[in-house]
Amino acid sequence: MSPDERSAVRRSNPRDGVALLTLDRAASRNVLDDELRDGLIAALEATDADADVRAVVLTGGSEVFAAGADIRAMRDQGFQDAIAARGARLWGRLAAVRKPLIAAVAGPAVGGGCELALACDLVVAADTAEFSQPEVRLGIIPGGGGTQRLARTLGKHRAMDLVLTGRRVSAEEAQRLGFVNRVVAAERLQDAALELAETIARRPAIAVQLAKRAVLAADETSLGAGLAVERELFLLAMASDDRREGMAAFLERRPPRFTGR
């Protein structure tokens, strides 16, 4: 994507190796309509293809992360309309992102907005953040992975509590439940997320991407299959120039010079 002022998603590169993607529809509370979804898909594809980007921060700004689906557009949809809707493309693209993706959440992350945060690899939340899956109140259920990711992250009973009641969860409770990594003061949110991304970006890119794949395999496979995936990815890491440089630097007591090869 070549972002400009008209883009639904703004991209900047505020730190070395880090891309910042900002959902830029504050007037509509970053509702996940087709325009914003398409803009986010394009931004994710661009950052994934950019060799200079080694970690990505996704934020909705200081007031709201994302308000979820466009209920006005959904209200008159029927079964066939829902099948034909192209919104599901976003969730598939998020699952395919190779680079670490950090959600920086302030204000409400509601419905699809909560699912968007859950689909990221790490979540940094402002103390103003709130998370909810309120779909049951509208006669539907989460459709972007909310039931599955919450159950895998929190366990069945805690996921049932959030999905069946639709209640809101504060940033502090979300951290206790296990789907927020860090809670910071609202004015520190962007800096805290960028600092975390920058730390990851300093690590050897091949090892980081392989490690992400290995951890994700734990959610998607049995223990035996996950261990096999981990072993395969470990062997790939052993074949990299960065592995040789990292070990040499450790033994020589000097800073490593990683090249991404």
Rank of each mutant, 00 (worst) to 15 (best):
D50G: 02
S2V: 13
S170E: 00
S12W: 02
D38T: 09
I140Q: 06
R89T: 10
G145I: 11
A8M: 09
I141V: 13
A214N: 04
G155E: 03
R243I: 12
R176I: 11
A201H: 05
R149N: 09
T199L: 09
H157N: 13
S240R: 05
K212H: 09
A46Q: 07
P142M: 03
D127H: 06
L154N: 07
R6C: 11
D4L: 02
V163N: 06
G178C: 04
A49I: 01
A82E: 12
D121P: 04
D242T: 02
R253H: 11
E5Y: 12
G226A: 14
L227A: 09
R37T: 04
E252R: 14
E35F: 09
I140G: 05
G155Q: 03
R98I: 02
G107R: 02
D127R: 08
E172Q: 13
F179D: 13
R152H: 14
A228R: 15
R188V: 02
L20H: 06
A96D: 09
I83V: 15
L235Y: 08
L20K: 03
G39C: 01
A46S: 10
A85I: 03
L32C: 09
P14H: 03
P108M: 00
G178N: 03
R10W: 09
T153Q: 09
P134G: 04
F258E: 10
Q77M: 15
A239R: 07
L122A: 09
R11E: 14
G260F: 13
G143H: 14
G111L: 13
F79W: 13
A42W: 00
S2R: 15
A109Q: 04
A103H: 04
D50H: 03
A151Q: 11
P108K: 07
R29G: 02
T153L: 13
H157A: 15
L23W: 02
A73S: 10
A214Q: 08
A197V: 00
A109C: 03
V229H: 14
D219F: 15
A119M: 06
V184R: 04
L216V: 10
R6I: 12
R137M: 14
E195S: 10
D242R: 04
A185I: 01
A19D: 01
P204L: 10
D50R: 00
D34F: 14
D4V: 05
L94W: 12
D241G: 10
A67V: 08
S240D: 05
Q133A: 14
A205C: 10
A82D: 07
E195W: 00
M160G: 07
R182Y: 07
V183N: 03
R244Y: 08
L118D: 01
V180S: 02
D50A: 04
E135L: 11
G155R: 05
V53Q: 07
E195N: 14
F79K: 09
A185W: 03
T259K: 06
L32N: 08
E5P: 05
D70H: 00
Q133T: 12
A171E: 03
R257C: 13
